[in-house]
Design a protein around this nucleic acid. Structure first.
Lengths: 197, 197
DNA sequence: ATGCTTTCCAAACGGTGTTAGGTATTAATT
DNA sequence: AATTAATACCTAACACCGTTTGGAAAGCAT
């Protein structure tokens, strides 16, 4: 039955088109400008069709948010396998978060509800704070072999330092100041790594 | 002419009622739930009246944001005059930011465009990054008497660390975890202070 | 009493997320 | 081949949103 498969493929295509279009509009004009009708216009369907792919606008944003965290998680795994030194690993992780936030700011915004992006579901955070099989948690544990609870605390500090620094930078700094902020960010991260070693 | 004065007073009263109502709704149901019509309902005026007090919804949020920064600035000045030790001063500043964010979360949200709050104007940030007569900048300069540019860099790190940590905490952590996060925040701040001393 | 200013609001414009209901088109069954 | 079932899709509507227009009352000065 090639017909059913073709339809499956088309469904997947439309779904990813919706996500792509939402991100494009957000990137261009901010998340405030993203509306179901505008997305529908671009993908050349009527607005109700979108609800066959996403239960609500909130669920669409949740999907984009989850994709962002998945992308980062894969980056962290890659880095963990690439370097032996935990200090080097963490510095690379910090750098990869920065690069991600600068190259896909609209995703970073929806990941942390910044700049008008708003997704209610906090489920992804719980998942991401989980320490089981968490590459960054393991890097910190390796760097400073202490009690697990201590590591978890340091991991939370790391989480807030990296994502927080970038969040505030994106929100408060003008576009041209961003490249200026990068070395300050990396320096702060390195100081943090040294101070917990 | 007491009539004119009375009218002035009434104007001021209505204006502050608008702000108060906006904050109440935001506190109760989030900034997404704040609408001109709802505010108008509460203050018992029609929606267009609001535009005699604020040019737009954005300007209303800008006012609330500015009030938040002003409140904090005054706290910082108070602390600067209260303690001699720069390290102690900074710890107190960090604590006062935390207390502020927890007691007036809706203001903190609009200050950094968190959780659906959205105010376009970034003017307040420029003003707040200005180092002239900036109490926190001076504390850092006193703690580590280096070149001014170095201090400014450290000040920016401080800015991102404190506000960033709290932003991410507010956004990602459930309500009950907040008091758990406070000591982690304060510890991180103290570590930062030690590491730059 | 007249004109002028201030105060205020109903109604509308073009947008939003979302849903109900219905129409074609396609597929399956008799 | 005709009929039924299912799928695909859209128009229109609902209840909101920020904002503007135009005009009606009310208070004041002449």
């Amino acid at each position: 039955m090639g017909i059913v498969e073709r339809r499956e493929r088309l469904k997947k295509q439309v779904r990813s088109d919706i996500i792509k279009t939402a991100r494009e509009i957000a990137r261009e004009d901010g998340w405030q400008a993203v509306s179901i009708r505008k997305i529908a216009d671009v993908i050349e369907y009527s607005p109700p069709i979108l609800y066959e792919y996403f239960e609500s606008k909130d669920k669409l944003l949740e999907t984009i948010r989850a994709e962002g965290f998945t992308f980062l998680r894969e980056e962290f795994e890659r880095i963990k396998n690439l370097y032996r030194n935990a200090e080097k690993q963490l510095a690379e992780v910090a750098q990869s978060i920065w690069n991600f936030a600068m190259s896909q700011p609209e995703v970073f915004q929806v990941m942390f509800n910044l700049e008008g992006a708003y997704c209610q579901s906090k489920q992804v955070y719980v998942q991401e704070m989980n320490i089981l099989g968490n590459p960054v948690w393991e890097m910190i544990a390796f760097l400073r072999p202490k009690a697990g609870e201590m590591v978890t605390k340091t991991y939370y500090e790391w989480w807030c330092l990296t994502f927080g620094f970038i969040s505030i930078t994106i929100t408060t700094q003008p576009h041209y100041a961003l490249r200026h902020a990068e070395p300050v960010y990396m320096e702060g991260v390195r100081r943090f790594i040294r101070s917990i070693k």
